[in-house]
Design a protein around this nucleic acid. Structure first.
Length: 680
DNA sequence: GCCGTTTTCGGCCCGACTGTTTTCAGTCG
């Protein structure tokens, strides 16, 4: 089956895992199928290519059995094992596994005893009362399944990282002040920085789990209690997300934090390694000698856990079992990018198009954050809904920006654009104007339903013009609304390297685009990355963290990110590209007489940022506090500032500090909490 | 099915909670 996408092959392995599970096959074999599915899904290159060059079979977790099946699937669209499993089981049966409380064994019994083959048939059987009569089933189980079925119908999928974090901050705030709590944090995929989050995980260190759980299940955000145990509770929150609480003794904090941060596959890999190389059993209770069960260490810190497996500390963002264990053992772990590495921000909007601040507002906010440079990149004319600029208005804006730069000083303000990439890959601005700008981001905002190959070709066409410095939010995904284009990363990044075009890691919290996996591949292929905020208001400039965490999940170091370097470096890259492509650096044409307005348009409804516009608080702060937000953002916190943060958390009443914190995140308390936990 | 710093065969992470049991299977993370 030529043209089969990796995702389709991965789906076959997932189905084999599910069906093997239901027929009661070996659990390790099932895990192998699931692991293969995951590896194939995240493969940066085309599977057929990986097979042809032998790179696929070299991956950990891929053995001869998987290679043989993949070859057959690529040829025939299916494989013998799947055919056989489908012959034995009805296809709808695996859907039952998605209902909470139904595992393989229950699914199998429902089918064998009641001939249930689908979710719909399960519902009918529950209503008839047949399910409660099965062996090892009872009224209570039937009721639970009925509820789980309703939840399944109304389930929410994964939600955007930013929304999950906001909800998590509310939960933490609700737990605050309970004297029994010694430490508290959000763990799970949120701590690992995944772009979308399923369940929330709250971890607490306390000697009195009963009191902690009592507070947790009565939080105003809790809609329903699902599980109520001594050290562990699960609730459904008002936004229908599930939230799990785990309370552990303070001495096991590191063991619990590691265990509860995951990912599950990473945990399995670390624990297996502990057994293999040191004969140590690692659990959330600490570190034990395998044979005697004697505890040799409580696991107070995560470092203790890694040390037991003879590994250095591995950052949470890397814990996906995608090579971090091997990198750790060989001393090849990356020194991940931190927010303080970024020297500037190269994608933002003003009132000239659909932003909420003037160029001067943006500049002053950038100075407050300690930036050395910014690029103003408003939309272009074809994006009418965003009041995009035509050539005339853009030229007027360039002159305006030069004035602002001269007036303010202390900040390089690059005159740029976020030029629209039209359906055929051409750019929405006159070439001469594009050549005269300091920085050109090119992005797609229309015709988003193209298939991946066509979209890849479109982006490459834009890069081939030589006029583009950076491709903005490459997949155009919206975490709260739509998936992105399935781009051919291999082809795209080869073109990026050839044409000298950077790829953006867009930090709009509903984009986080490039996706993490693509970041990693771009880095491996030597493509320049740029971490931007795509700010539509001054307060958004502080939200670099969303781009930073995405880049970190892509194993990015400061040296992989172009805007950790001085602006002159970026300008030189642009000059170099023009030289090699024989393009003249353009002198800008003069604006046509009469085109003078720069900011006159009424800003349109803000599509990108559903929440209210942030205040430009930091810029109005008194002199000593001028760089407060910047210092906090860079985590340059001395003892005096730490005390001030501490004091504010306890007593509030420090306006400038609160304002500065507010520029760094939605919930100033959460920001302060994070800064303190980072430096402690 | 995959894998190897005791192994090419014999392992594969580990524990809490629930319901239906009277010692445990099933599910989940």
């Amino acid at each position: 089956m030529p043209g089969m996408e990796n995702g389709e092959v991965a789906a076959i392995f997932s189905e084999m895992a599910d069906l093997t599970h239901i027929v009661g096959g070996d659990e390790h074999r099932i895990r192998s199928f699931r692991r293969a599915a995951r590896i194939i899904e995240n493969l940066p290159e085309d599977l057929a290519t990986g097979i042809r060059y032998g790179t696929f079979e070299k991956r950990a977790g891929i053995g001869p059995g998987t290679v043989r099946r993949v070859k057959q699937i690529l040829r025939e669209g299916t494989c013998d094992d799947l055919r056989e499993l489908r012959r034995q089981l009805p296809p709808g049966l695996r859907d039952l596994l998605d209902v909470k409380g139904i595992g393989a064994s229950t699914a199998r019994r429902l089918w064998q005893h009641l001939k249930i083959r689908s979710i719909e048939e399960l519902e009918r059987a529950l209503i008839r009362g047949d399910v409660a009569k099965l062996p090892r089933m009872g009224q209570k189980t039937a009721e639970k399944l009925m509820k789980a079925l309703q939840d399944h119908k109304h389930r929410i999928g994964r939600i955007a990282y930013v929304d999950a974090r906001r909800m998590g901050a509310r939960v933490l705030a609700g737990m605050e002040g309970l004297p029994e709590i010694q430490r508290i944090t959000l763990a799970g995929s949120l701590r690992r920085g995944k772009a979308t989050i399923g369940d929330l995980d709250v971890l607490v260190a306390s000697d009195d789990p009963g009191r902690v759980a009592a507070r947790f299940v009565t939080l105003p955000e809790v809609e329903e209690v699902l599980v109520r145990g001594e050290g562990r509770c699960s609730v459904r929150l008002l936004n229908r997300q599930q939230c799990d609480l785990r309370v552990l003794p303070p001495e096991n904090w590191g063991a619990g934090l590691h265990y509860f941060t995951g990912s599950q596959l990473h945990n399995i890999a670390v624990r297996s390694r502990g057994l293999r190389v040191a004969g140590l059993k690692i659990s959330d209770k600490g570190i034990f000698v395998r044979d005697t069960e004697i505890r040799v260490h409580p696991g107070g810190t995560e470092e203790d856990i890694f040390a037991a497996a003879k590994l250095p500390f591995i950052e949470p963002e890397l814990r996906e079992n995608t090579g971090e264990i091997e990198a750790g053992e060989q001393g090849r772990l990356p020194r991940l990018l931190v927010a303080g590495d970024l020297k500037g921000d190269l994608h933002m909007h003003t009132v000239a198009s659909d932003g909420k601040g003037t160029a001067e507002d943006m500049a002053r906010a950038a100075i407050a954050l300690g930036h050395a440079y910014i690029a103003i990149t408003d939309h272009t004319k074809s994006l009418e809904v965003a009041n995009g600029l035509d050539e005339g208005r853009l030229l007027a804006q360039v002159r305006h920006l030069r004035e602002v730069e001269d007036r303010i000083g202390r900040l390089r303000i690059a005159a740029g654009t976020e030029v629209d990439i039209l359906g055929d890959g051409s750019l929405d601005l006159d070439e001469q104007v594009l050549r005269g700008l300091d920085w050109v981001v090119a992005s797609v905002h229309s015709h988003l339903d193209m298939n991946g190959e066509a979209m890849t070709t479109r982006l490459i066409a834009a890069m081939e013009t030589g006029l583009v410095d950076c491709i903005g939010h490459p997949t155009a995904r919206r975490l709260d609304r739509r998936g992105g284009a399935e781009l051919d990363w291999e082809r795209l990044f080869q073109a990026a390297r050839r044409t000298g075009v950077a790829m953006e890691v867009n930090g709009n919290p509903y984009r986080m685009d490039l996706p993490d996996v693509a970041c990693r591949r771009a880095k491996e292929m030597g493509v320049h990355l740029v971490v931007n905020t795509d700010a539509h208001a001054p307060g958004h400039l502080s939200r670099q963290e969303y781009g930073v965490i995405t880049a970190r999940r892509g194993w990015a170091e400061a040296r992989d990110i172009a805007n950790t370097k001085p602006f002159e470096h970026l300008a030189e890259l642009r000059r170099e590209r023009f030289r090699t492509r024989g393009l003249a650096l353009g002198a800008l044409p003069s604006p046509e007489p009469g085109v003078v307005e720069v900011v006159a348009h009424e800003p349109v409804a803000d599509e990108h940022w559903p929440e209210e516009v942030d205040d430009l608080a930091a810029a109005d702060a008194p002199d000593d506090d001028a760089d407060l937000a910047g210092r906090l953002a860079r985590a340059e916190v001395d003892d005096a500032l730490r005390e001030r943060l501490d004091d504010w958390l306890r007593n509030s009443g420090d306006g400038p500090l609160e304002d500065a914190l507010r520029t760094l995140g939605e919930n100033p308390m959460m920001v302060a909490f994070e800064i303190l936990s980072k430096i402690s």
